[in-house]
Amino acid sequence: MLATVFQALQSGLLDALQVAVETATGPAGLLIIAVYSFLIAIVLPLPSEVVLAAPLDLGLGTWGTYAIIMLVSGLGKAAGSVVALKIGNEAKEYGPITRALQRSRFDVVAWSERRTVEIARKWGYIGLAVALSVPFFPDTLSIYAFTVLEEDYPKFAAATFVGSVGRLLVTILLYAAGVDIVAHGGEFLQ
């Protein structure tokens, strides 16, 4: 099943989904942002910062629109993290996801577990929120790495929400400070 999902994603669906977010307008755009953020937490290796590019035009001004985007994205990612935690807990028991990741080109499991588990053990849910606040680092990687140690769904979702909003705030602040985000892959804030 996972192989089918990954094949579909590689066949251009990733690009189409990212374009959908970047061109989402009005209230319907909020639904697209929520779904995109939900999927990022579970399976999509895409930048979550792209939601800031959505030209929603909700009549709330720039900061009001950013606030709504951060809220919707954070809630979507928090909901997705609960699903990821469930998958991660099942993977600990059955191992197919872990084996698939270990067969990948990069030893994602070894690297992410080593680094992220260190953070999780030392800082717990605060560590998850901080890890998710780092712009341009894959959300999915951090979320699944933290599932190794965690089982409290509400706390996990809350930490994911805080980290998601934190990442978007950091991205906006970097942009406002004049950091050349475009050079770092953030073409969405042009």
Rank of each mutant, 00 (worst) to 15 (best):
V72F: 12
A177Q: 08
G64L: 10
E113V: 02
A157P: 05
L173P: 03
F38S: 03
I119E: 06
P45Q: 11
I87S: 09
V109G: 00
E90L: 13
L174Y: 10
Y175A: 09
K86R: 02
G76V: 06
R115K: 14
A100G: 11
V170R: 12
I32N: 03
L30I: 06
V5M: 12
E150S: 13
A28I: 11
P96R: 11
Q10Y: 10
P45S: 04
S37I: 02
R121E: 07
L168V: 07
E187M: 10
V21C: 12
Q102P: 07
F188E: 10
K77S: 11
G61F: 13
A54N: 02
A28G: 12
V170Q: 09
L2G: 07
A3Q: 09
F188G: 08
H184C: 05
T116P: 04
P47D: 05
G61Q: 14
V43C: 10
L85S: 02
A84H: 01
E151S: 15
E187I: 06
G74K: 08
I69Q: 05
H184P: 05
G26N: 11
L46C: 11
V83H: 00
T23H: 15
G124P: 08
E49Q: 11
D152R: 13
I87R: 03
F188R: 13
D139H: 14
F106E: 06
I87L: 15
D139T: 09
A100K: 02
A41E: 04
L132W: 05
G76E: 04
I69G: 01
K77A: 13
E150L: 14
L169F: 14
L75T: 03
I42K: 00
L141K: 06
Y66S: 05
Y144Q: 01
L149Q: 07
G185T: 04
T147M: 06
V83C: 08
